[in-house]
Design a binder for these strands. Structure first.
Lengths: 234, 234
DNA sequence: TTGGCGATTTGCGCTGGCGCAAACTCCGGA
DNA sequence: TCCGGAGTTTGCGCCAGCGCAAATCGCCAA
């Protein structure tokens, strides 16, 4: 682990308020891993031996249902923790985490968590703050699913992806990892057919540009209007 | 606060592994409140001044959307914490909590949380374990909303209510607080009309008995079959 | 006992979005 | 360069469940 990494890491929200010496003690106990695209970081039901900090790449977190459905719970972006089951009193991972692209992660053995929580209260508080945010997000998802039309949900999903993984290009804001219609369908509780129809319609209206495993948002503001149900379909 | 209360409280999961003297120091700083039916325990957006332990009664946690929809996030049963926004790094409550029946709660000032977390690691760990459970529940809700039919979702909701607030009667298992069709609709993302139709159909089949703000589950096992999608509608 | 109101039931028509299926497109490897 | 297959598009038919509206029921208060 180079010192360049170290200084980038120090700026992450999870380490806010953590003293430099403490940061060294924390990071010093991690090992750095590369995860190839499409490979799992951890798997549902598996013993939660480690927790992770994503340094580079994007990870998709999914749950499978007994009857064979897959639902995407969230995408992880660089700087976020994942697999922190132990901090929440679980011994197994509740979901599958798959690298959407080649990734770099730091990994700590889960058994270190209780000592970390006791010795580094800022780190612990930051972690639980992130958990609080996820709980919020999950409730927001429930509310969206309960009250919105498919069109609004898909628009919301795209905006969320843009916010966490958007990269400016000359055409608009590109979602910076491969994402298929099927993936978007699994995030929004619909079918790839419906997503495809929506994207086609939006492309006709010039709101997005999309291709194979690729979506670029051209008019985020228009999309927001749709997401909030303030636009009638033509 | 009587010592009878004290011994009941000691047996709660949140206080598992907490030494008796520590328990006294924790509970000693709480004040006990009665909340009348339909009155709020705390409200969305409000400053999170306190966190609570429900001792008796049932509390409904709801979120309102900007466009006027109400969604029920969960019901709190005796022994559960609520309003722990501070432990998750929030300064305001994320939802409304309304007493479904007359309730008794313990309340602590939120500013005590950091000291509690530092001084009573078991209490803190138990709390975060509960948070972990809620995060799981929320994800389960998302998955249900994404993959199940309304009929299955309503069946799941009833079974969940039975599990956390069921009281045996000679007719079956009664959900032990007033609950309307509208309430069930808000839990499952549907309309009171559809809930009413489902309950009527189930009543004809002898699976439930229901009346004004009252539901009794007669055949939980049959309902489970419906919830899991293993029964075709007649 | 009688109103009155909130909760519930039920009918009816409509439509958003799914299921199925077929055609097409494009990328990557041989 | 060509081929195979994954990803995507699109047409078509259907139905679960919503919206609306009206009728009914049952609890509570006077």
């Amino acid at each position: 682990m180079g010192s360049l990494d170290r200084s980038l890491i120090a700026g992450l929200p999870v380490f806010e308020g953590v003293a430099a010496t403490d940061l060294d003690r924390i990071v010093g106990q991690a090992r750095s891993l590369r995860i190839a695209k499409e490979q799992p970081v951890f798997e549902q039901e598996q013993e939660a031996h480690s927790f992770f900090l994503l340094l580079d790449g994007h990870v998709r977190v999914m749950k499978s249902t007994p009857d064979g459905h897959e639902v995407t719970v969230r995408y992880i972006s660089p700087g976020e923790l994942m697999g922190i089951a132990h901090a929440l009193g679980r011994t197994t991972y509740p979901a599958n985490a798959i690298a959407a692209v080649d990734c770099v992660v730091l990994a700590w053995p889960s058994r270190l968590w209780p000592a970390f929580a006791a010795d580094f209260p800022s780190f612990s508080a930051n972690t639980y703050k992130a958990v609080g945010g996820r709980l919020q997000d999950a409730h927001t998802r429930v509310i969206e699913m309960a009250t919105e039309q498919v069109e609004q949900r898909v628009a919301h999903a795209l905006l969320k992806l843009v916010k966490q993984a958007g990269r400016k290009t000359e055409e608009g804001i590109l979602i910076d990892f491969p994402i298929s219609r099927q993936d978007i369908a699994e995030m929004t509780g619909t079918t790839l057919h419906t997503v495809s129809r929506l994207l086609s319609a939006w492309e006709d209206q010039g709101l997005v540009k999309s291709g194979r495993q690729k979506v670029t948002v051209v008019e985020p503001h228009q999309l927001l209007l749709i997401a909030e149900g303030r636009v009638e379909k033509s």
